Simulated assay, not measured.
Amino acid sequence: MIRLWNNLKLRNTALQVAYVGGFVALVLGMALVARANLDELGIISGFDFLFKSTGWKVSFSLIEFTASDPYWRVLLVGFLNTLFLAAIGLVLATVIGVIVGMARTSSNDLARLLGAIYVETFRNVPLILQVFFWYAVFTRFPGPRQAISLADGMFLSSRGIYVPGLNITGLSAFLGIVVFLAGLGVIVWITAAQRFRRMEPARKTRLRLLILAAAALLMAAIFWLGRLPDTPLVSIPALKGLNYRGGVRVSTELTALAVSIAIYGGSYIAEIVRGGFKAVGRGQIEAAQSVGLSAWQVFSRVRFPLALRAMMPILTNQYIWLVKATTMGIAIGFADFFMVVSISINQSGQTLELIGILMAGFLLINFTLAAVLNRINRAIALKGDQLRS
Rank of each mutant, 00 (worst) to 15 (best):
E271R: 12
Y71R: 01
P305E: 05
S45F: 09
F122E: 09
A371T: 15
R274Y: 02
A214H: 02
R388G: 10
R282L: 06
A221G: 04
R195A: 02
F60E: 14
S157M: 07
L254Q: 12
V119M: 08
F65Q: 07
V340A: 06
A202W: 06
S53R: 08
I343A: 02
V125N: 13
I63A: 08
R378F: 05
M30L: 13
G101I: 07
G226S: 05
Q130K: 04
Q350T: 03
I161N: 15
F47T: 13
L166V: 00
S45N: 15
A103C: 11
L293P: 09
S260L: 14
A87Q: 06
P232A: 04
F337L: 03
F362M: 05
M359R: 07
S157L: 09
T191A: 13
I357K: 14
I343C: 00
I357L: 15
V74T: 09
L171K: 10
M312P: 00
L114M: 05
F47D: 11
G241F: 00
M102A: 04
M1A: 11
M311I: 07
L15N: 00
V178G: 13
M199T: 14
A270F: 06
L85W: 04
G183Y: 04
S267M: 12
F337R: 01
P201E: 04
F23Y: 05
A331D: 08
F84P: 13
I261P: 15
I88V: 14
